[in-house]
Design a binder for these strands. Structure first.
Length: 616
RNA sequence: GGGGUCGUAGCUCAGUCGGUUAGAGCGUCGGCCUGUCACGCCGAAGGUCGCGAGUUCGAGUCUCGUCGGCCCCGCCA
């Protein structure tokens, strides 16, 4: 060992990224590369290491004859050590190139190297197989998980989305304006995350569920076009596409009608898909009313990649001798079915499993039909005469080899939702979701209110600032349930990408909506007085939309969950396994905030259990 | 709050009908190896079968509870 100690200085800074190494035959270009030892192959004589950074990997070779001392030190290198290597780019000897590597024609013959940092043995190997590792572990050691090619790709894609969004909207005259993270708690909607105010003992801020009111006020202030890539928070239970904190692309504009938002978003998504994944998206998107979506697909976010839809069979059974269905049809109820192409091959067991599923979803029963060798089969066939049978086939467009599942009920939405869920599950199970398709859709004409039976009042389907359709305003008193709103959702492949509305800009209508929602004048003033005042101060017609950036990134990357496109996501119990948040806090801290917890609040058991994954 | 599913070595998994000392591959550690690229060969270490009760002569295996991950329902304006 020579005495002179080596430090990381200018001399050791990379001159090229690992993935960018290339050369010409006959030349030996001197280079310095920095990175992680992803793999080592020690042949006893020659030592090969694959050195990795975010651009890719390059092979470094240590030769005991050329540099015996350096070779001896290189034997100590292990996975994920951080090193700087000085060497020369060589074309690999005849027959040793690796065509599966971008840099596979070349290698760096090491002249010297500097060990910048060691790494403890890894809890799991870093590579594509890591997808199979317990997500528990991946989240605990997120820094290692993120070092993987795939996670790097996903987060770089996410960055591209953010950049494209800013450029596109900025070029369109939209101004990015930040709105507060410490805001007022609102009673409608999701549960708020609360933040105690030390200087206002007993009072709480809420983290925003969306910057809704602030962006409306920015319109009132005359900014005309606003956008923000913004974190939002909702204290509700998690799903594969739902996290307690998530990122919205939030947009608002003045003096607009629905068409302006539609064409803006269509143009934006068209450009984004081209830019990020090279896909051509056709515009304009399809439009569908809420009730058409419910009737045909049993969902307000239909997946149009699936080539079959719900059919109305009331006319078929109105004339049948099967009493339960005939009566329901006669009383104005709904007899509907979902066809399954190729479903004739389903066994008795398959059919009863599907019926079980339907019952779990709330159906009273499920009647299957199958067409085998041209013959209609099923327990209810005997109740149908010849003409009803052919009406059944023609109205559901089923032919030989297909199946049809029929349910009946008095609630239009309930019947459709059950069939809609079956449609999704059957299509997935039988591989009937068109691959590589991107089916965009605007869902419009949502109801403005829906009945909250538990609370015994009407509540807003979208939010209380959504404008009713002007021709439905007279219905607000007589029949609130039939009032349509000027809200719209953007749906992609059965995912709600985002939603928005034309807002109320008339303070009288806003007060009217509050009263329909059973807010007393006083309560409305207390909660939203500042908005009502603002609305009274000269408000242009305005509206907007918010797109879920995590979902967008998930769909563009093909990830199965938004966790895979977020750097530090939380588990289903809303915990961060890496940092251990949320945690109990010292009593002193609570005292300062004038907060006392009851029961489990301060107990240790709230810390995430780490028996299995504790790094120590 | 509810339903489903999973939990065995650092990782991925196998473990039969409840029966001897719980196995494999990868990784780790040691040895050999000069053109490997998931290097190869030889050897070794490594286990609270998530945790706790119960049934049993005997539990990784059966029962109940509990903790945790994931999927779903409710919830998510």
């Amino acid at each position: 060992m020579e005495g002179a100690q080596k430090f990381f200085d200018k001399e050791w800074q990379r001159t090229v990224y690992c993935g960018d190494v290339s050369g010409k035959s006959g030349e030996e270009i001197p280079v310095v590369v920095n990175g992680w030892v992803r793999r080592r192959r020690d042949l006893g004589g020659l030592i090969f290491i694959e050195l990795w950074d975010h651009t890719g990997a390059v092979q470094v070779v240590f030769n005991p004859e050329l540099t015996p001392e350096v070779h001896e030190q290189a034997r100590e290198l292990r996975s994920e050590f951080v090193v700087s290597v000085k060497g020369r780019i060589h074309v690999r000897p005849e027959g040793t190139a690796n065509p599966s590597m971008k840099t596979g024609e070349w290698e760096i013959v090491a002249g010297d190297f500097l060990r910048l940092a060691p790494a403890a043995p890894l809890p799991f190997e870093i590579g594509e197989l890591t997808d199979k590792v317990d997500e528990n572990l991946r989240l605990h050691y997120r820094y290692l998980d993120l070092r993987r090619e795939k996670m790097q790709r996903n987060l770089r894609l996410r960055h591209k989305i953010a950049m494209y969004t800013r450029n596109f909207l900025s070029a369109g005259g939209f101004l990015e304006i930040e709105t507060p993270m410490l805001t007022l708690s609102t009673p409608e909607g999701a549960r708020d995350y609360l933040v105690p105010s030390r200087v206002n003992p007993g009072s709480f801020y809420a983290l925003p569920q969306s910057p809704q009111i602030f962006k409306q006020i920015l319109m009132i202030s005359g900014f005309d076009r606003y956008f923000q890539i913004v974190k939002c928070f909702r204290d509700e239970d998690l799903r594969a596409d739902r996290q307690p904190e998530f990122t919205q692309i939030d947009i608002e504009m003045s003096y607009l009608v629905e068409e302006d938002i539609f064409s803006l978003i269509e143009q934006y998504l068209q450009g984004l898909f081209k830019e990020t994944i090279g896909v051509d998206v056709a515009t304009p998107f399809r439009r569908m009313s809420y009730w058409e979506a419910m009737d045909r697909f049993g969902s307000d976010k239909p997946d149009l990649r699936i080539p079959f839809e719900i059919v109305d069979l009331s006319p078929v059974f109105a004339g049948s001798s099967f009493e339960p269905f005939r009566d329901i049809a006669a009383r104005g109820g709904y007899v509907r079915g979902i066809p399954l192409p190729g479903g004739a091959s389903l066994s008795r067991k398959n059919l009863s499993d599907i019926e079980e599923k339907a019952k779990r979803l709330g159906a009273r029963g499920l009647s299957p039909f199958q067409i085998k060798d041209g013959e209609l089969k099923g327990p209810l066939v005997k109740y149908l005469d010849e003409s009803s049978q052919s009406l059944l086939k023609s109205s559901s467009s089923i032919g030989d080899g297909d199946a049809l599942f029929v349910i009946a009920g008095s609630d239009r939405r309930e019947v459709s939702e059950i069939l809609g869920t079956l449609r999704l599950e059957l299509a997935r199970e039988h591989g009937l979701v068109a691959k590589g398709a991107w089916e965009f859709l605007w869902v419009v004409d949502f109801p403005l209110f829906e009945r909250d039976e538990e609370a015994g009042r009407w509540c807003a389907v979208h939010h209380p600032f959504t404008s009713p359709c002007s021709e439905d305003i007279p219905l607000m008193d007589s029949n609130p349930g039939s009032v349509r709103s000027r809200a719209y959702d953007c749906v992609l492949n059965g995912n709600e990408l985002g939603g928005g509305s034309i807002r109320i800009h008339d303070p009288l209508i806003q007060e009217k909506v509050f009263s329909c929602l059973s807010f007393t004048k006083e309560a409305a003033r207390e909660r939203f007085g500042f908005l009502l005042d603002a609305l009274s101060s000269g408000t242009p017609p305005h509206g907007g939309i918010a797109l879920g950036m995590d979902r967008l990134a998930m769909l563009l990357s093909g990830a199965a969950s938004i966790r895979d496109v977020m750097a530090f996501p939380k588990t289903q119990k809303a915990q961060c396994l890496m940092s251990g948040a949320p945690s109990a806090v010292p009593g002193e801290q609570l005292k300062e905030l004038c907060i006392k917890t009851v029961s489990a609040g301060t107990s240790e058991k709230h810390a995430p259990s780490q028996e299995k994954t504790d790094p120590k």
